[in-house]
């Protein structure tokens, strides 16, 4: 059972990760390819080098696209925006469309 399920989950999450990476590149006009984003590198500050206004832009685009709310008082925000992987995971868990 697990052997069948696992690859399915990871391939769909890889797909979502790719989609979110494309979204990041498009909305921030980043001059890099999807494959160049290390899913575990920090998005904020070092790593991808986004500033807090970039993060706001990402938050706005993501919440619109996936029909979810990102709230300032959520303790998870730091974690959510820590990397492409954690952002994708958060979307996978919270999306309504």
């Amino acid at each position: 059972m697990q052997n069948i399920q696992k690859p399915v989950v990871s391939s769909s999450s890889a797909e979502l990760q790719r989609e979110v990476a494309e979204l990041l590149i498009e909305c921030l006009n980043l001059e890099i390819a999807v494959d160049q984003i290390d899913p575990d590198a920090p998005l904020y500050g070092e790593g991808l080098g986004l500033d807090s206004i970039d993060v706001l832009e990402v938050a706005l685009v993501v919440s619109k696209r996936y029909g979810m709310q990102l709230r300032a008082d959520s303790a998870d925000n730091q974690h959510t925006f820590s990397s492409l992987r954690s952002l994708s995971d958060h979307i996978a868990a919270q999306r309504t469309r």
Binding site: Y44, S52, L56, A59, R71, A72, S74, N77, Q78, F81
Partner: peptide, 11 residues
């Protein structure tokens, strides 16, 4: 400088 600074501004 916080990830959610901007979300707080928006609120």
């Amino acid at each position: 400088g916080h990830v959610d600074s901007m979300l707080r501004v928006r609120e």
